[in-house]
Design a protein around this nucleic acid. Structure first.
Length: 108
DNA sequence: AGACCCGGACGCG
DNA sequence: CGCGTCCGGGTCT
């Protein structure tokens, strides 16, 4: 089994830069690392060998939706994700981010 | 080589 | 505004 790939390393690095109380989108990370596919990012986050080190729960969809978590697009996992974000001050409303200002721009 | 993935954009209804 | 479809990049089997 292969360990962390260079691509994932970039994803984790970008994700780790997201400060508490803020969130990022897959597309943003993808763009930051020079990737045209947010899916690859989500996939990398899904594996996430660095659980507490890489806050994958701080990564949401570009539509400001909660996105997915642990390989699911809905369920208890998502609820947990929302709760973690809420604990950091990030609130979701109507299944979407209440305040877009919480978006952290890794890109430039 | 083929299938699978936590998305994104586009087009249509 | 909501749903359906295709695309793209990467990893895993």
């Amino acid at each position: 089994m292969i360990s962390v790939t260079p691509f994932q390393k970039r994803v984790y690095d970008a994700t780790r830069r997201v400060p508490k109380g803020m969130v990022t989108t897959y597309a943003m990370i993808a763009r930051r690392i020079g990737c045209g596919s947010a899916r690859a990012v989500g996939q990398a986050l899904r594996r996430n060998p660095f659980a507490p080190e890489v806050p994958c729960h701080r990564v949401i969809a570009s539509d400001m939706t909660i996105g997915g978590f642990s390989g699911r697009t809905g369920g208890a996992q998502i609820r947990r994700k929302l709760r973690m974000l809420a604990a950091e001050g990030v609130v979701f409303k109507g299944g979407k981010l209440a305040e877009p200002s919480r978006l952290h721009r890794l890109d430039k």
